Simulated scan of single mutants.
Amino acid sequence: MKIGFRTIKTAVGSALSIYVASYLGLEFYSFAGILTMLCLRETVKRSFRDAWERFVACLIGIAFAVLAFHLFGFHPWVIGLILLFLIPTSVMLKVQGSVLTACVIILHMFMSEHVGVSMVLNELKLVAVGIGAALLMNSYMPNREKELVRLQKQIEGNFKSIFQQIARFLREGATDWEGREITETVDILRDALKLALEDIENHVLREETGYYAYFLMRSRQFEIIQRIMLTLSPLEGSYEQGRQIADYLDEMSVHIAPGTREMTQGRLDSLARLQDEFKKADLPQNRHEFENRAALLHFIHDMERYLKIKQKWLIRDKR
């Protein structure tokens, strides 16, 4: 059994809010602990958003309950009448996910048969204590940078291995590669994007989008790598152009890390020179040579897109 950091915060925060509500002498003080559990979300921004929605829903519920119970008395059908107006209003204000929280407050008033100032203040204090404890617990979030850096290095290592294997296939015709890095990269990118998005939502006062933009860039590059593999897989035989591309891919595998715009431009220039050499080469002599040449030219265009995606990311990252 593993107890996570969020579980610990939920346990401590709920106990704290119940203790504070009890110390203040509030009725239904255990409700503060439930509110704390509900508002402790995965990220700081989600907690703030959820806390605000529940606060608004509770205010609406209190307003409708005070009005309805005051006019019609404390009857079960009055609760149905309140819900008849509460739910559409919550939907209109986009706080429908917090209707159940407001319903609990309405039931508090119904069970107490009291909607005076003291009861309203009691419910507002319960909401304040419950939400406050949740926000206090979520004010600290563990630093995810080490994990993000680890995922970044794994992706770059897999990209390097994939380029080397493609180069080996072009140079030697080797087909014994199992492709483990492909499926592994799919999983890593999925986890990295999720983690990077959570990291963004844990910065309330400033936007930290660096890692998310990086993994999004790698995700787009990986789509191109998969297309390149499909393009080159039907190649037959070993041709001079294929060996030239293999040398280029070996060079690319050394420069997977972010690097600089100048380094990326250098790879683009090398690719352009390679394309010029292909254009000057003798025309294909048979169908197989023609299909191979077409695949290699298609590879050049895909690799150009791969590098330009990185170039655009580097430009934005330096701003």
Rank of each mutant, 00 (worst) to 15 (best):
P234M: 12
M303E: 15
M1F: 10
V120T: 14
W77T: 11
H70M: 03
W177Y: 15
E27I: 01
I182L: 08
F72Y: 15
Y19A: 15
P234A: 12
S98Y: 01
P76F: 05
L314P: 01
F159D: 02
A102H: 00
M137V: 11
Q265H: 02
T43K: 03
F85E: 03
H203A: 07
T36C: 13
F48I: 13
I182Q: 01
A196Y: 04
E184Y: 00
K146F: 11
R218G: 03
D250P: 00
E240P: 00
A134K: 05
V127Y: 06
D302E: 15
A15P: 03
E262D: 11
S112R: 11
E123C: 09
N286Y: 07
E201H: 02
R227V: 10
L86S: 00
E291Q: 13
F64C: 12
L189K: 07
Y212S: 06
H298M: 05
S14Q: 05
L26C: 08
G4M: 02
H288R: 14
G80L: 08
F74Y: 12
E145L: 11
S30Y: 12
A174V: 06
I87E: 02
E304D: 15
E147C: 05
A21P: 08
N286P: 07
F110Q: 06
L148A: 11
Y211P: 01
L205R: 07
K125T: 03
A196W: 01
A281Y: 01
R287N: 09
G4S: 07
L235M: 13
I188E: 05
K312W: 08
F159N: 00
T7K: 08
R287P: 00
G242R: 10
M303K: 15
N122S: 09
N292I: 02
S22H: 10
E156Y: 09
G179M: 04
C58N: 14
F55W: 11
L151P: 01
V44M: 09
V120R: 03
K310E: 15
S17E: 01
V99S: 10
Y29F: 15
V104Q: 02
L151C: 02
Q154T: 11
V44C: 03
A63P: 07
S14T: 14
V78F: 07
E27W: 02
I87V: 15
E198D: 14
G13T: 04
E156P: 08
S90C: 15
K279R: 11
I245K: 01
A32Q: 05
L86C: 10
G61L: 04
F5K: 13
L296M: 13
G242A: 14
Y248D: 08
E156N: 14
V120A: 03
H301M: 11
I106N: 08
G73T: 02
L205P: 00
A51H: 07
G61H: 08
R190A: 12
I300T: 11
Q275P: 00
H203G: 11
K279A: 08
